[in-house]
Design a protein around this nucleic acid. Structure first.
Lengths: 156, 156
DNA sequence: ACACAATAGACAACCTGATTGACTATGTTG
DNA sequence: CAACATAGTCAATCAGGTTGTCTATTGTGT
């Protein structure tokens, strides 16, 4: 058939679908007591993880400088999602840990993402959704992490 | 089955797939004589369109202020993708038009996106790819445009 | 016709999130 | 223990965005 979609539709739809999920996530998080959380926060908190990190590690994980990571941590600290404490084993390091409030945000995010996925499953059918996920896995790198998203798109 | 993917994988894969396409596009554009083009440029030039536009309209289309749109146009102008001329019918307006070099970039982008889609078709199978596109259409808003992407993700 | 409102664009000041460079304090190692 | 490496902070700078203000032009209502 010659009715194939133009190539540019694919990236557009992928981005829009991503945005749709993220926007719905944050609308719901806002309803559930996290009105100040921003899209970036989720990624950063995910990168921090349950065990905590340091600014340098976080910067590496996120693909930004340690200074930028430090500033991000500061802003997360201001809204109460993380806290810092000096490492007893190495007094140079300051461990960044999620607060209970941060943990709550992360748990709720996971839950909401599951719900959103369920909505897609209802809309598309479970098999189609699984196929979609499988196909996306095929065309994306195996190791998801190291999203150096910040500024990647916008920088002119 | 309980082997369903966790919900957070979906947005992650969507973003990674988007990035993969955009990165490959720009790698190829660089090879084809457009080394300075940045991801944002393509969206902006697409928004400018073959007929040209003004800073105000562009700002509206992109969801940013007219000043921001003006600055973006300046930077596009510096690298030779657009040019400005005063509207003969309204001497307040300055029409922003794509230069031949800008047109070339846009045409090549369209071609490269088609090629990338063909690669996905080869990898996933034509039917699967069509299903993927159809599913993405179902879960994204009908009218694609008005990507107010700039700063949407990063703003803390 | 003319006063007044609306629009397009430019300029300035400021904000945020990133960068690099320099510096201090602490660990690690030959 | 001297030399080097690492963690974090401070300071200056940059880029891209914002709002506010201003001028020049166009559109409109009486």
């Amino acid at each position: 058939m010659s009715s194939d979609a133009p190539g540019f539709e694919l990236p557009l739809r992928l981005l829009l679908a991503f945005r749709a999920l993220i926007d719905e996530l944050h609308a719901e998080l806002s309803r559930q007591g996290h009105p100040d959380i921003r899209p970036m926060h989720g990624f950063v908190m995910q990168a921090i993880g349950p065990g905590g990190t340091t600014a340098v590690e976080l910067g590496r994980a996120l693909g930004v400088s340690k200074q930028a990571a430090g500033k991000t941590v500061e802003s997360l600290e201001r809204v109460g999602y993380v806290e810092r404490a000096t490492d007893p084993h190495d007094s140079r390091r300051k461990i960044v840990r999620l607060t209970p409030y941060g943990m709550d945000a992360l748990h709720r995010s996971a839950r909401i993402f599951d719900d959103l996925r369920a909505r897609w499953a209802a809309e598309l059918g479970v098999e189609r959704l699984r196929a979609l996920e499988a196909d996306l896995r095929k065309v994306t790198p195996a190791n998801p992490w190291r999203l150096d998203t910040p500024g990647w798109f916008t920088s002119l």
